[in-house]
């Protein structure tokens, strides 16, 4: 396939219809909800969605209501990739036996960071290694937001959460964010990419490219969370843009092992511009920010970003 294919050049190329529909209970400015809406616009109605436990499941499925206009299943927290494995295998064998119409049905996992980088890592690794044909999207809001902003393996260094509190002895999260796209890429899957809602066409194209790819595809979306990030909701998209422009969350894709930066940032902004508006980083000193800047510089150098 042509990996550089732009399925959606302008917003007009995206369908007007929605398959993640209004009435859900997401907070104001929820980046995750915007991302899910875009991803489903990109993939269209011939899609089966699997979600683990998390914000998305809570906001979208208060029985007897649903925001899903595509088939959707939630089973538990740590097993979305295993459930998707069964869905994919089931569709494949039923089509082979002539019991299902032969057509491309997207198998899509929409998971949070806890369900991906922490409790769901084993089942994801298994599914990637087995080579199921599915797109796994991690909607990373960098903490367990639906249970009340607890730290996850995706929480940034020194970040405040309710389980990495800022006190007299310890000042926020002690560890650097787990590099999930690199872990997935180490499984030698055909497609790995990062995205944010600030670059919606980049996000939509990556979702579509991942879904079109034969084999497992992984999309890691930084999903801004005004509630957990202690940020005014109206800055949700803006902060996502700053994450990219500062190099804190670079946008790239790895196709068959080849890394390509998809949104070039000729001159990176200082990381402080991303950190300062967010209450979760309010306690950082200039020294702390310098330390984070160093780490961001190293990561960008590794990715070949100036």
């Amino acid at each position: 396939m042509d990996v550089s294919q732009e399925y959606f050049k302008t917003f007009r190329d995206l369908p007007r219809e929605d398959w993640f529909v209004c009435g859900h209970r997401a907070c104001q400015g929820c980046g995750e909800a915007i991302a899910v809406r875009l991803i489903l616009k990109a993939l269209g109605p011939n899609t089966i969605v699997v979600s683990p436990t998390g914000c998305l499941e809570i906001i979208s499925s208060p029985f007897p209501y649903t925001s899903w206009a595509v088939p959707w299943i939630h089973v538990a927290f740590e097993n979305a990739a295993a459930v998707a494995s069964g869905v994919e295998a089931g569709l494949k064998v039923l089509a082979r036996k002539g019991l299902l119409e032969k057509r491309k049905t997207n198998v899509l996992v929409l998971a949070g960071d806890g369900g991906t980088v922490d409790i769901g890592l084993q089942s994801l690794s298994g599914a990637l290694e087995r080579g199921h044909n599915f797109l796994y999207v991690c909607l990373d809001n960098e903490a367990y937001m639906n249970t009340g902003i607890q730290r996850s393996g995706a929480t940034p260094f020194m970040c405040w959460t309710t389980t990495s509190q800022v006190g007299k002895v310890k000042r926020g999260n002690l560890t650097w964010k787990k590099n999930m796209p690199a872990i997935v890429a180490a499984h030698r899957v055909p497609y790995v990419a990062t995205a944010t809602v600030a670059y919606p066409l980049d996000l939509a194209n990556k979702a579509k490219r991942g879904a079109e790819m034969e084999g497992p595809a992984y999309l890691h979306v930084l999903a801004s969370c005004p509630t957990g990030w202690r940020l005014p909701p109206e800055l949700s998209v803006e902060i996502s843009r700053l994450a990219v422009q500062t190099g804190f969350f670079p946008l790239y894709e790895i196709v068959d092992g080849e890394l390509r930066v998809t949104v070039e940032i000729p001159k990176r902004k200082p990381v402080a511009e991303y950190l300062k508006p967010q209450g979760r980083f309010r306690h950082l000193t200039d020294e702390d920010i310098a330390k984070i800047q160093e780490q961001v510089d190293r990561e960008c150098a590794r990715l070949g970003i100036p």
Binding site: I73, V83, V87, E88, A89, L91, L94
Partner: peptide, 10 residues
């Protein structure tokens, strides 16, 4: 979990 996924598609 995989059995649930497979069962869910019939």
């Amino acid at each position: 979990s995989a059995c649930i996924g497979a069962s869910a598609v019939g």
